Structures are given as C-alpha cells and as structure tokens.
Amino acid sequence: MEIETLDELDDHLASGASLRGLRLQDLDLTGYGEQLAARGDLTGLVVLGGTVPLGVAELLLARGAILFPGIADTPVDPWRGLYLATDLYDGLENGYAHTCDARTYAWFVDARLRTDAYCTLVRAIHDDSVTDELDEFVFGRSVVGIMGGHALQRDSAAYARAAGLGHRLAEEGHLVATGGGPGAMEAANLGALCRTHEALEEALGHLAAVPGFRSDVTAWARTGLAVRRAVVGDEPQPPSETLGPSARSLGIPTWFYGHEPPNVFCDVIAKYFSNAIREEGLLARSNAGIVVLDGAAGTVQEIFQAVTPLFYAAEGAPLPPLVLVGREHWTERMPVWPALTAIAAGRPMAQAIHLVDSIDGVLPLLAPPAR
C-alpha cells in the first residue's frame, strides 16, 4: 500500500493498522519519530525518499524498516512522478540551457555517468515513479494517442489541422495523449488545451511568430508559455495529482530524444529517461485508439510497435483502432499501409486498422468515451 500524503499517513497511524507492507513515498517525516517508535517492530515498512531527519532515520533502520534516502547531485527528484510544463522550464528566464529539462538532458548524456551504477539506479527509480503516477492519472479515462512528426511548423496548415483534431477529441471527452514533443505532438496538445475555436485560432496566430524550435529553443518555449498563459490565465497550474478528470491532454516525452524539447501545452507531462518504457507506455494507455499523422522514421517505428499487440490479439479481444491519416503519405511517401494490410490479412487486426484521407474521417472510427 502506497502512502503519498501526510494526511494518508495520519489516517493510517490513527487506525492502528500494521505498518508492514507500507510504502511511504516522498514524505516529510519530521515530527513523526514518536509515533513510529510507538509501533515497535517496523519490519516491512519501506520509506522512499522524502525528508527523513537523522533521528527518525536511525529509528527506522534500528526497527527493521528499509530506507531509500533522498538522492543528491542530480537535476531531478526521482520520487516526484509527473511534471508540469513550468517544472521542466524552470530557469527559462536565463535561457533554455539553464532549465531543469536541459540540465537533466546534459546529465543523462554525460559519458562519465551513463554507466555509473548510482545514476542508473536514479534513472530507474525516476521512471518507475513516473509510471506509478501516470497509471493513477489515466485511470478510468478514455485516452486517444496521437502520433506524428516533430518537424511540423507552427505556421503550417498541417499544424492547424492537428490542433483542430486535438481540440475535437478533447471536446468529445477524450484525454489527448502525445509523445509530448514539438510539431504534430505540440499541435494536438495545444488544441486540447484550448476550450474554444476562437482561443485556438488566436493561439495559432501568436505561435506562428516562432514557427520551429531548431534555431532557438528559448524563443520557441517562451512563445509557447506566453500563449499558454493567454489561454489558461496567470493562475498557477494545479499540481498534477489534483487535475484528475479535468485534464484534457497528456505528453509522454523522453530525454533519450533530448534534441526535441517538450511542448508546454500538456496539462501533465510524463517524461522518461527510457525511451522503450515511454513508447510502450503511450501505446498501452491509448485505449480508445491511436491516430497517426504525417511522420518519418520515428513515427513509422511507433506504428509497427502499435501493430504488434494487434497482430497477436486473441480472437474476440477488443482492439483499439489504429488510424493512419493521409492516403498519399502512407501509401507513397512512406508506404507503410501496404505492409500493414499484408500483416493483417486473415487476422482480427484487419478490422482495427484504417487509412483515411483527412482528419474528418478520424472521430467516427474511435471508441467513444464513457459518459
């Protein structure tokens, strides 16, 4: 049983229930020494990070608890879980290189640390914490995954169409999930963030001033954050754990592709070190369907990763639809569709894959959200 707030811990202590099997995650245990001491044997209690004063730590260890201390000398807190855009872009006033996101990427690719056992442990703990909170965040939600290339420019018609798709999906009650990066991913998250067509049109106009991220990530991110503030106001964004069903979009990026900065329009960001865990996490959680917009090698890889569970699905198992948008792109420029139809021949997945000419054909193919 995981205890993630002090209120939960107080309730559990007051109930008199056993502490064996509890996981106290990222809590400030200052002032809890006497209450824990009164419980006697603490074997089976696991304390994960947080603030643990020396006296409390000595008590925990002496009574048989397992203590994972806070992690030092890393740019991220591995116990924290999900991020907000403002978390990753903290420090942007001094340029992108000074942000939490950029500093974490620099730490991740540091050749001296890539195989260091301590750093490997930190990354594993971090990604597990993200997954744990992500599972709670999407529980009970209808999730539509949107895939597409990172190179799509903000001032393009294709970007506007992707944003329109994100908006329509969110209005239908779906949680819009993307890879959390620039291009088509940013567009879909932007569309979901905007509550009206008018707000979306205005946002697109402002973003066109800095159409891409490659020449100046700082200007790209600052423009995005300014647009976000115009859309949602200057009120601080609530913590990810309080958003619940009010969230409309989710980004799942990775520091493995550190050259792609995360977009700022996601309500919540689940950023991973492991790209394999990140990709599987996005696909597995897209329970209402996956929509694939124009893309190149990375998008093609994701398509076939999504196809594998469809191919091996048992007869009668519910299969989320996989919808490719753009007949010319997926039959000529990136001829993926012929391969998909050949793989699906004679199998249940043949009913789950679709090729449509435009975004207008997407929504009728997706599983409707529960009302």
Rank of each mutant, 00 (worst) to 15 (best):
R285K: 06
L45V: 06
Y312F: 14
R285N: 01
E302G: 01
E202L: 15
P75W: 05
S286R: 03
E302K: 07
V356C: 05
L243Q: 14
D116N: 15
E2W: 15
V268M: 01
E171W: 06
L29S: 04
W220F: 15
R123E: 10
P78Y: 01
I290E: 08
H197C: 01
H167W: 15
L250M: 07
S156Y: 10
I303F: 04
R371N: 09
G55I: 00
A345K: 13
E201V: 05
V130Q: 11
F311K: 14
L88Q: 03
L355C: 07
L319S: 12
I290W: 01
L134R: 04
D77T: 03
G295Y: 07
L310R: 09
N189G: 05
R20K: 14
L165W: 13
S156R: 13
I343C: 08
A160R: 11
R123W: 10
K271V: 08
I125M: 13
G295P: 05
E332W: 12
H206C: 12
G16I: 07
R161Q: 14
A85P: 10
L324R: 12
A117Y: 06
L282G: 00
V232K: 06
A72K: 09
A62F: 03
T341S: 05
W220G: 03
D294M: 02
L363Q: 03
D110H: 04
A342F: 00
L27H: 02
L193A: 13
V231S: 02
V292K: 07
F273Y: 15
D28V: 07
E279Q: 04
G295S: 02
P69D: 08
I269V: 15
H126C: 01
D101C: 02
P321M: 11
A162Q: 08
M349Q: 03
A317W: 03
A184T: 07
I277F: 08
R228E: 07
D357H: 09
A162C: 12
H150S: 13
H197S: 12
V130G: 06
C266E: 00
Q237K: 03
V356M: 08
V47K: 06
A221H: 02
E133F: 14
A85T: 01
A306Y: 13
I146M: 09
L61M: 11
H167Y: 10
D7S: 15
W330H: 02
G205H: 12
G55T: 03
A111M: 12
L165H: 04
H206N: 07
G91N: 08
G298M: 11
V307I: 11
H126P: 12
I303S: 10
F213H: 14
G148H: 06
T99M: 11
V138A: 05
R371I: 13
L59S: 08
L322F: 15
E302F: 06
L225E: 02
C119S: 07
R20L: 02
A57G: 09
T30A: 12
H150K: 01
